[in-house]
Write a protein that binds this DNA or RNA. Structure first.
Length: 457
RNA sequence: GUGGUUGUAGCUCAGCUGGUUAGAGCGCUGGUUUGUGGCACCAGAGGUCGCCGGUUCGAACCCGGUCUUCCACCCCA
């Protein structure tokens, strides 16, 4: 058999040591924030029954699901007539499981299955990979991590407030200073469709309007025409398009614009309250931007909609979420309101890399490498190694008896800041030689002094 | 899913209108230094030119297919 070069499946990646250190840096900040706000961690299986997943993300979403072929003879139930009927008819007979597409639907499933054990309001966070059979691009992968935090069992707008606060805390910790938390409300979009005389069509309306900053008002009008919106209705939208000013000014304008839509006004009230709560908490409205044309997750969001975009980078949104009043309804549990959002770690990684915001100092990693010349030094080194680790210092002993130069090169490559050299002089004097590879200074001392010096750093 | 794009050493890339043994920089290994890394100098290893097929006396180069990369659309983190 000919040797073949190994490759990765399309849209997947390996993460090397440097990348993992950087990813953990991001994960730790997010995790700490979720915990600080009282969220508890949950994990669910990578695969779910296909019946749990399908129909939750729209037709597009169903197409992007990775399906898992049944084990064994997966063709045993397939008749020739099934194959003639096409892929859709055959699928149900060859696959009953799929990889999760997001963390929200598995969470809804979990809530329904554990409805009696859960204490409400239930605040949970979940950090796991999800899979989408999309075509990969920059910032778009087939396997990527989501960091979700959701609350179910309350419709309090305090939850919306906390989402804003968590986003602000995470981004501040990451050193991101130029970003926008775009905020809107599904009810406002519904109201918008009502007052322009296109009630019930906010989905279509939003798909077009959402592209405003990308393709411009003229093109959006064209698209709306193609979707057979009346010219009169399109004309009514124009004051919305150039809406500028503070959040308050925009809300004031929308309030009069939506005066004939009860639901639209409800959305305004909700948004005002979220901003008011932010104020009560003692936090500014910096980075929070009410954006009437923001439209995401329309297949299930019913209240607030969030999206976070970092300015001046070539990556799409890095976080998003919203309120869904009845996500568990499809699983037979009605009346459970939830709100949640998600950080896209892989995209945040790309953003931090593009903006050069990763901390340069390597916090994780070995602090000391023990080097020696022969067996005797290695035996002495093992005792030293034990004491270093007992003192809580990340340390390692070079495993092979090789030239000292090679051992130093290893320390240098691995960016280990200290090297201990153990030769006959040190062994006889029961000391160690400690070299600081950054300053280049080296001196002999007792091990206890060396430990102090390393910890003093 | 639709349209386009890319693939040459571990990495980043050269390689003329098809013509002998396919190059550079960085990295890697060894040496200058048998108790000392980074810097410098010297030497060396490393490629069925993504894969399969076709055209041709001759293909890294032209053609077809396939996989991969990146981009736009759709949608999304």
């Amino acid at each position: 058999m000919a040797i073949q070069k190994p490759t990765l499946p399309k849209g997947t990646r390996d993460f090397g040591p440097l990348q993992m250190a950087r990813r953990n840096y991001i994960f730790d900040i997010i995790k700490d924030t979720f915990k600080l706000f009282g969220y508890q961690q949950l994990e669910t299986p990578s695969m779910e029954n296909l019946s749990t997943l399908t129909g939750k993300y729209g037709d597009e979403g169903d197409q992007l699901l990775f399906k898992i072929l049944n084990s064994g003879d997966y063709l045993k139930d397939v008749a020739p007539s099934d194959i003639e009927a096409g892929a859709a008819a055959t699928l149900a007979k060859v696959s009953e499981k799929g990889l999760r597409y997001d963390l929200t639907v598995p969470f809804a499933r979990y809530v329904v299955m554990n409805r009696n054990e859960i204490t409400y309001p239930f605040k949970r966070f979940q950090i796991q990979p999800v899979w989408r059979a999309d075509r990969p691009q920059r910032g778009r992968y087939r396997e990527f991590y989501q960091c979700d935090a959701d609350v179910v069992g309350t419709d309090s707008l305090v939850c919306e407030l906390e989402i804003l606060l968590m986003i602000k805390r995470v981004f501040a910790s990451l050193g991101l200073k130029d970003y926008a938390i775009k905020l809107n409300n599904r009810k406002i979009l519904t109201g918008l469709a009502e007052v322009i005389g296109a009630a019930g069509r906010e989905g279509e309306l939003c798909v077009a309007i959402d592209k405003l900053d990308k393709i411009g008002w003229a093109k959006v009008q064209e698209e709306l025409q193609q979707r057979s919106f009346k010219q009169e209705a399109i004309g009514k939208l124009s004051p919305i398009i150039d809406l500028l000013g503070s959040n308050r000014e925009k809300l004031d304008f929308l309030e009069s614009f939506l005066k004939d839509s009860e639901i639209g006004l409800k959305g305004i009230v909700e948004l005002r309250e979220v901003l008011e709560l932010l104020n009560q908490y003692g936090e500014s409205e910096d980075f929070v931007d009410f954006d009437v044309v923001l439209a995401r997750g329309l297949s299930y969001y019913t209240g607030a909609i969030f999206e976070v975009k970092v300015n001046h980078v070539s990556i799409g949104s890095v976080s998003g979420g919203g309120r869904y009043d009845n996500l568990t309804g499809v699983f037979g549990l009605e009346g459970v309101s939830g709100v949640g959002f998600s950080f896209g770690v892989d995209r945040i990684y790309d953003v931090l890399e593009e903006l050069n915001l990763f901390p340069t100092e390597q916090l994780e990693g070995t602090q000391v490498l023990i080097t020696y010349f022969e067996e005797e030094g290695r035996n002495y080194g093992l005792q030293v190694l034990n004491k270093l680790r007992t003192a809580g210092i990340a340390s390692e002993l070079y495993p092979d008896v090789v030239k000292i130069k090679k051992q130093f090169t290893y320390a240098d490559k691995k960016q280990i800041p200290f090297v201990m050299v153990l030769g006959s002089d040190e062994i006889n004097a029961k000391q160690v030689s400690l070299k600081n590879l950054i300053s280049g200074q080296q001196e002999s001392m007792d091990l206890s002094d060396a430990i102090k010096m390393i910890q003093g750093q």
